[in-house]
């Protein structure tokens, strides 16, 4: 039985913003299938009556006083950015040309 097809892997790559090559798609389709078939065993013991655990510690919301604190240095942050302009991150166009 196949857990995942090549077309599904291509769709996942799009969702995950990975511009995979054709060779990678072939390779990953085969590997992900093997991995998924192995890990799918978890469903054998995961019966309806067992609660899910997302986290090892019980989490609760933590509030703090609303006090202004120094933030990161702007020049230092922008110096590490791939591109910047006018004290802001410069990003590629966000709309398609056809629109």
């Amino acid at each position: 039985m196949t857990a995942i097809t090549r077309a599904e892997v291509a769709h996942l790559a799009t969702l995950a913003r990975l511009d995979l090559t054709e060779t990678e798609l072939d390779h990953y389709a085969q590997q992900l299938d093997v991995i998924l078939q192995s890990v799918a065993r978890v469903s054998e013991i995961a019966t309806a009556d067992i609660p899910a655990t997302s986290h090892p510690l019980p989490l609760e919301n933590v509030f703090r006083d609303d006090i202004a604190r120094p933030c990161l240095d702007r020049a230092e942050v922008l110096a590490a950015a791939p591109a910047h302009e006018d004290d802001r991150f410069r990003v590629p166009r966000i709309l398609d040309e056809e629109v």
């Binding site: 995942i4 599904e8 996942l12 969702l15 992900l32 998924l36 890990v39 799918a40 978890v42 469903s43 013991i45 995961a46 019966t47 067992i50 609660p51 899910a52 655990t53 997302s54």
Partner: peptide
């Protein structure tokens, strides 16, 4: 994949139960 709709319960959901 494990988080995508339709597979979430079978994969991620089951894994969280195993964690319990």
């Amino acid at each position: 994949y494990a988080l995508s709709s339709g597979y979430y319960d079978a994969y991620y959901g089951s894994a969280q139960k195993v964690r319990t």
